[in-house]
């Protein structure tokens, strides 16, 4: 096998998403492993101020065209596929963000090559690229191999430190302006700004995150009481938001906020990769779940296998009584 490693950058309104740097970090490891070069593929229009942090890569292929200004997946995918057809990279790494969600499958489909979803690790083993992937909401890990070049790999976010893929300088840049643009019947009309919530959960120091395990809207009250005694706020994973039990502004994960509080209590959250990428950077993570196999226990510092409605009120009461005792000591 020969050919370079490509990372397709995930850009949202001209800003590089953190998942890009994670992909660059993994791409760097793989390029070292294979003794080849790492190139970042940057697609857009009038790209400015984003090259200066991609110096971990050997080069940036900066593809600029008016048709690439908006994030229309089929247009971007076709350009990546055509470039791959002439430059022959041996692996194309695509961060699985909402912006680039369709891209990996579309590129693989157009090129007729294999695609591996939800990868966490990539390495060369016995002249074959081997990928570690997560399945079933993070409950199973699979190891797969593909001999085909290029193969396309979708990368789970929240696995690597963003800093490992981040540099304060730009690499060599090649500008590509002659591209084969595919006509599309998908047009961006406008962006809809995030709803302003009553609070900004990304600024809270203590968060009690609730998931499907909370079972009913009424049960949110016990988690709110816990958040109150800790001086924090409650937030939720997708099932709780989809049910309308908490507003969109309280969603943590791929489509919601990325939070890094000092304390994150995951209450009834299974720990699917889409949620974990939004809270993994929290200082102290405590997980409470009735399922001992819940993947959240892989990322939590402390775990409790129990029913939420038993543990949450007990914890609230224990904190209250300690603070009362503390008050007496100082009285």
């Amino acid at each position: 096998m020969s050919g370079n490693i490509w990372v397709v950058a995930a850009l949202c309104r001209g800003r590089l998403l953190d998942a890009t740097y994670e992909a660059v970090a993994l791409g760097r490891e793989l390029a070292e492993n294979l003794g080849t070069k790492l190139e970042v593929l940057l697609l857009g229009h009038e790209l400015k101020d984003v090259l200066g942090t991609l110096g971990i890569a050997d080069a940036v292929l900066c593809v600029e065209h008016a048709a690439l200004a908006d994030p229309v997946p089929e247009v971007h995918a076709h350009v990546v596929a055509r470039l791959a057809g002439t430059r022959h990279p041996q692996a194309i790494l695509v961060p699985q963000t909402n912006v680039t969600w369709e891209l990996g499958s579309l590129v693989a489909g157009e090129l007729g090559v294999p695609y591996v979803n939800s990868c966490t690790e990539l390495r060369m083993v016995e002249q074959t690229l081997e990928a570690h992937t997560v399945l079933y909401g993070g409950k199973v890990e699979a190891i797969v191999r593909t001999k085909h070049a290029p193969s396309i790999f979708g990368l789970v976010s929240g696995v690597r430190a963003v800093e490992k893929g981040y540099a304060d300088h730009a690499p060599a840049t090649e500008r590509i302006t002659e591209v084969d643009v595919q006509p599309t019947s998908v047009q961006l009309r406008r962006y809809l700004e995030p709803e302003a919530g009553d609070i900004d959960i990304s600024k809270e120091e203590v968060l009690v995150g609730v998931g499907r395990g909370i079972e009913t809207r009424d049960n949110l009250e016990v988690s709110k009481e816990l958040a109150d005694v800790l001086g924090g706020a409650i937030c939720g994973s997708r099932p709780v938001i989809d049910q309308g039990w908490l507003p969109l502004s309280r969603q943590v994960g791929k489509s919601g906020a990325t939070v890094k509080p000092k304390l994150y209590i995951a209450a009834g959250i299974s720990g699917a990769p889409e949620h974990v990428e939004g809270m993994k950077g929290s200082g102290l993570i405590i997980a409470i779940n009735s399922d001992p196999q819940a993947p959240i226990f892989q990322v939590a510092h402390y775990g409790i296998v129990a029913k939420l409605l038993d543990v949450l009120p007990a914890l609230t009461e224990a904190i209250r009584s300690r603070s009362r005792r503390g008050m007496k000591q100082y009285a």
Partner: peptide, 29 residues
């Protein structure tokens, strides 16, 4: 184009949380 699945496994215990056990009041403490 097919992938060759080498193996499937439950996630390894590496990085697993320190588990706290006991009745709710004891765990809360």
């Amino acid at each position: 184009p097919a992938l060759e699945i080498q193996s499937m496994a439950k996630p390894s215990a590496a990085g697993h949380a320190e588990m706290l056990e006991g009745l709710p009041e004891a765990v809360a403490g």
